[in-house]
Design a protein around this nucleic acid. Structure first.
Length: 270
DNA sequence: CGTGGGACCTGAACGC
DNA sequence: TGCGTTCAGGTCCCAC
């Protein structure tokens, strides 16, 4: 599931019900879900939720002592249940709260949960938040010959953008996904940043995109997928010019774009 | 230092 | 029906 808008939606959905709750028990049905290295699991017992935030694609809960973090990766879901085993067959962890469980369900088992006493490691790992990124810093990030799509996906450069919203933003801005970032002129970079932010904001308003596994904590689907222009639209007509949407691979990731609306300004990139 | 490939996993969709 | 293949919103690790 999980790009910035989906994670933000999950955080907003959980926040009112989680703040003030105390962790009474912890259960991990799939051991690897509890990320190592992490502080010992017992440290979570008796901890109270003070604040729930998002940083990039990480959910970060501020406890009275330390931090609980969760990364949904591809198929992670979070919801409340009266049952330790959750409501589906993919429950990997359960945190016992005051009167119910916070369930972590994750079909592909890629998701991770951890407990730490500081967030320095996270800040060292992640670039700035795209929604509050200013043009000057964005311009500095583009000062390298990397294909722009690869750069948008690099969490150490910008935190939170994933495959869908990278494709959608590049299309909206008319930038070819393989365009070397340092070939993008400042004016065009500003257009890209503006579209990226608008698209992420709109996706948050639509409560994320449900293509497969993603659900809001209340079990409902998001509707952001109804507004995609190019993602997953291979061979369908471009909404601007009617040319068929192309699908290529960029750093192993499926990439959708319109070859007519998104021209490369320079020669091919490897 | 950067990137390409494989690994980590399961399930859905599709071709035969 | 069933088998095989391909693909998936993410990230990590290792070889080059």
């Amino acid at each position: 599931m999980p790009e910035l808008p989906e994670v933000e939606t999950v955080v907003r959905g959980l926040r009112p019900d989680l703040i003030g709750q105390t962790i009474r028990s912890t259960e991990f049905f799939w051991a690897k879900t509890y990320h190592q290295p992490s502080a010992p699991l017992e440290g979570l017992l008796g901890r109270t939720f003070h604040k729930l935030d998002r940083r990039g694609k990480y959910i970060v809960a501020h406890l009275d002592v330390g931090y609980l973090w969760i990364h949904l990766r591809m198929t992670g879901r979070l919801y409340f249940s009266q049952h330790l085993q959750g409501e589906d067959r993919w429950t990997r962890a359960a945190l016992g709260l005051d009167s119910r469980y916070l369930i972590f369900s994750d079909a592909r088992k890629f998701g991770r949960i951890g407990f730490c006493l500081d967030l320095d490691w996270l800040e060292e790992k992640l670039g700035p938040e795209p929604l509050t990124l200013d043009a000057k810093i964005f311009g500095r990030i583009l000062h390298r010959p990397t294909a722009i799509k690869a750069l948008l996906l690099d969490q150490a450069r910008i935190a939170g953008v994933g495959n869908i919203y990278a494709d959608e933003s590049l299309f909206a801005a008319g930038v070819h996904p393989l365009e070397p970032a340092n070939k993008i002129k400042p004016a065009k970079a500003l257009v890209l940043l503006t579209h990226l932010q608008a698209i992420l904001q709109r996706a948050i308003q639509h409560e994320g995109a449900t293509i497969g596994w993603y659900r809001k904590p209340d079990g409902q689907k998001g509707s952001s997928q109804d507004h995609f222009q190019v993602y997953g639209k291979t061979n369908q007509p471009c909404p601007h010019c009617g040319a068929p949407i192309q699908r290529i691979l960029v750093t192993q990731r499926s990439t959708h774009f319109c070859a007519k609306c998104q021209k490369k300004s320079s020669t091919a990139v490897s």
